[in-house]
């Protein structure tokens, strides 16, 4: 359960987030959408404590963000751009994160097979392609069985096979009752995976509610059309 109260963030003169209030329901997939530069990544990074907001509060499972850092053990995060220490091997980075989290879970073998990552484990990161790095990020995000999973444009660098496998994976995690936050520009993915939707525009939330009721109200069956209409109206 994540609740965001009166969140404000400025980067110099730019107001990235303006008085955001949002309750992210547990056990559901919430999609955050909006045009480029609307504040999606800033919002996600505020939840993770990577960005320090000017005002407002965020609670993750009733822990105040920017107080105790231990709440992060319940979060798995897959960033938009995945970069790692260039000289370390994949397996070393994974072991490092395991060590930092004091965990001794094994890497999911099916996942490794599906992503074709077995051969890449012993290669240093500087030799990996963007898509492969993103797969490693996905493995790290899901590996520790976190209660909350945050995915920032997860499918943008994946090939169709990996992408569809990835969506199945997200679906499985959702079935397990995980709270998932997802950003994407691919509306089909969002319609397929998400329960509710937060639409951000210029740092404000313009809409927050369930996707099915939104579609019903607008008498549409494709989310893409509804969103395009909303963007044009504003």
């Amino acid at each position: 359960m994540i609740s965001i109260v009166n969140l404000e963030k400025k980067f110099g003169d730019l107001e990235a987030l303006k008085n955001i209030n949002l309750e992210i329901e547990p056990g559901k997939v919430t999609a955050i959408i909006g045009p480029n530069g609307s504040g999606k990544t800033t919002l996600i990074k505020s939840i993770l404590g990577l960005v320090k907001p000017e005002g407002g509060k965020i609670f993750v499972n009733n822990n105040l963000v920017n107080g105790d850092y231990s709440y992060k053990k319940d979060i798995g995060y897959m960033p938009q751009v995945a970069r790692y220490p260039e000289n370390l091997k994949v397996i070393e980075v994974i072991n490092m994160i395991k060590d930092l989290r004091n965990s001794n879970v094994e890497i999911d073998n099916d996942l490794l097979e599906a992503f074709n990552l077995k051969v890449e484990l012993n290669k240093p990161f500087r030799t990996l392609s963007g898509g492969t790095r993103q797969k490693v990020s996905a493995i790290i995000a899901f590996m520790f069985d976190p209660q909350i999973i945050i995915l920032d444009e997860p499918t943008s660098g994946l090939d169709p096979i990996s992408s569809s496998y990835f969506k199945d994976l997200v679906y499985k995690e959702k079935e397990k009752g995980k709270t998932i936050i997802l950003t994407s520009h691919i509306m089909n993915d969002i319609q397929e995976l998400s329960d509710s939707l937060a639409f951000l525009l210029e740092g404000k939330i313009r809409f927050h509610g369930s996707i099915s009721s939104l579609l019903k109200n607008q008498e549409e069956n494709r989310l893409e059309r509804v969103i395009a209409r909303m963007m044009m109206e504003n």
């Binding site: 231990s70 992060k72 960033p79 751009v81 995945a82 220490p85 989290r101």
Partner: peptide
Amino acid sequence: YNAREFVEMMLCQPID
């Protein structure tokens, strides 16, 4: 500068 993404990744783990 080059470690920036690494720092980001580390800050997503439970460390201060």
